[in-house]
C-alpha cells in the first residue's frame, strides 16, 4: 500500500555522510593531518571552532575539530592526535579512502560577530591550535574586518609544533604579532622557554578593544584566564573551547554535560563570562 502520508521522512541525526580522504600525512610523532571532501560535493558549511563526528565503520565515531577556515572552499581539514580507537584507526587512513562525517556541530568563535573590528588575541596550547587555526585563517582572509592580531602558541617541546610553515607566514603577515614558547627546549631551540602564560605579559594590548580566543588542554584555561584578568581583559571578551566526550553531537546522549550545559550544543566555544560560574567548566 502506498502511504498517503506525503510528509518528508525525518532525517536520521545519527547517519553519517561519506567523505573522501584527499590527503593524510603525518605532522608530528602523534598528530596526523587530514584533508577531506564530502562525497556529495556539498560544502561542509562550518564556522571556525565547530566540530564534526568522524566515523570509521566498525570502530566508532569521535568528535574532531575542523582546522581549516571556511574561506577555503572545496575541502576541509583536521589534525588528529592518536589517542583513542577512532583516532588510532584514522592514523591508518590514506588518500582515496572514505570516512563518515556528521556535522558541523556546536557553537563557533564569533568571527562574524563580537570579534569584528576588534584586536584579536589568539592563545593556543598544543593541539589547541588546531581549531583556532580555522579562526586565524578566517581572520587573515578577512583582514580588514579586524584590528591587530596577536597569536600566542605554546607546546611541550619543539617537536610538538604544528603548522610550522603556516606559522612563518602568520609571523611575517602585516599587523600580526606572533609569539611562541615551549615548556622544554632542545639544543636547536633559540626561542622562548616557559609555559604559555609567560607570553601574556609580553603582549601589548588594549583591553577595551581586544577579544581573546583561548584553546588548549583543560589545565591551561585557569592559568591563562588569570593572566588575561591581570592585564584587564573582561570575562565577556574571552572565548574558550572546551573539550568533552561529545558522543552524539546533537544534545541527546548526555556525555558532554558541563553541569547543565551540553558542550556539543551550547559549546564547544563558550564566552567565558557565560561559564565563569559553571563549576565543571574550567
Amino acid at each position: 500500500m502506498i502511504s498517503s502520508n506525503t510528509a518528508q521522512p525525518m532525517k536520521d541525526i545519527y547517519l553519517p555522510e561519506p567523505a573522501d580522504v584527499l590527503k593524510a600525512s603525518p605532522m608530528t610523532a602523534l598528530e596526523m593531518f587530514f584533508e577531506f571532501r564530502l562525497a556529495s560535493g556539498r560544502e561542509l558549511g562550518h564556522m571556525p571552532g565547530q566540530f564534526v563526528e568522524v566515523s570509521i565503520p566498525g570502530i566508532g565515531e569521535a568528535p574532531i575539530s575542523i582546522s581549516s577556515s571556511p574561506t577555503q572552499k572545496g575541502s576541509f581539514q583536521m589534525v588528529v592526535r592518536k589517542v583513542g580507537n577512532v583516532s588510532g584507526a584514522m592514523h591508518a587512513l590514506s588518500a582515496g579512502r572514505q570516512v563518515g562525517i556528521r556535522g558541523p556541530f556546536g557553537t563557533h568563535f564569533p568571527v562574524d560577530g563580537e570579534m569584528k573590528g576588534k584586536d584579536i588575541l589568539f592563545i593556543c596550547g598544543g593541539i589547541g591550535l588546531v581549531p583556532v587555526r580555522s579562526a586565524i585563517n578566517y581572520v587573515l582572509d578577512h583582514r580588514d574586518d579586524y584590528g591587530h592580531v596577536t597569536i600566542l602558541f605554546g607546546t611541550k617541546t619543539p617537536a610538538d609544533r604544528l603548522f610550522t610553515d603556516e606559522m612563518q607566514r602568520w609571523a611575517s603577515a602585516k599587523d600580526v604579532t606572533f609569539m611562541e614558547t615551549v615548556d622544554r627546549g632542545d639544543d636547536a631551540w633559540k626561542g622562548n622557554v616557559g609555559v604559555i602564560t609567560t607570553l601574556i605579559p609580553k603582549v601589548r594590548l588594549d583591553p577595551a578593544r581586544t577579544v581573546a580566543v583561548v584553546c588548549g588542554p583543560p589545565i591551561m584555561y585557569k592559568f591563562v584566564i588569570l593572566e588575561l584578568d591581570k592585564v584587564g581583559l573582561k570575562a565577556d571578551r574571552m572565548y574558550v573551547s572546551l573539550e568533552r566526550h561529545m558522543k552524539c553531537g546533537v544534545g541527546k546522549c548526555g556525555h558532554c554535560q558541563v553541569n547543565g550545559l551540553y558542550a556539543c550544543q551550547d559549546g564547544a566555544v563558550f564566552k567565558y563570562s557565560d561559564i565563569a560560574s559553571v563549576r565543571e567548566a574550567i
Binding site: 592526535r81 589517542v83 583513542g84 573539550e243 568533552r244 566526550h245 548526555g254
Partner: peptide, 18 residues
Amino acid sequence: DGCMLAEFALVAGGHNFR
C-alpha cells in the same frame, strides 16, 4: 549508559571530567 559509571565523562587521552 549511566552518569554514575566511572568512565561516563572520560575522553580519549585519559582525562576524566567527573
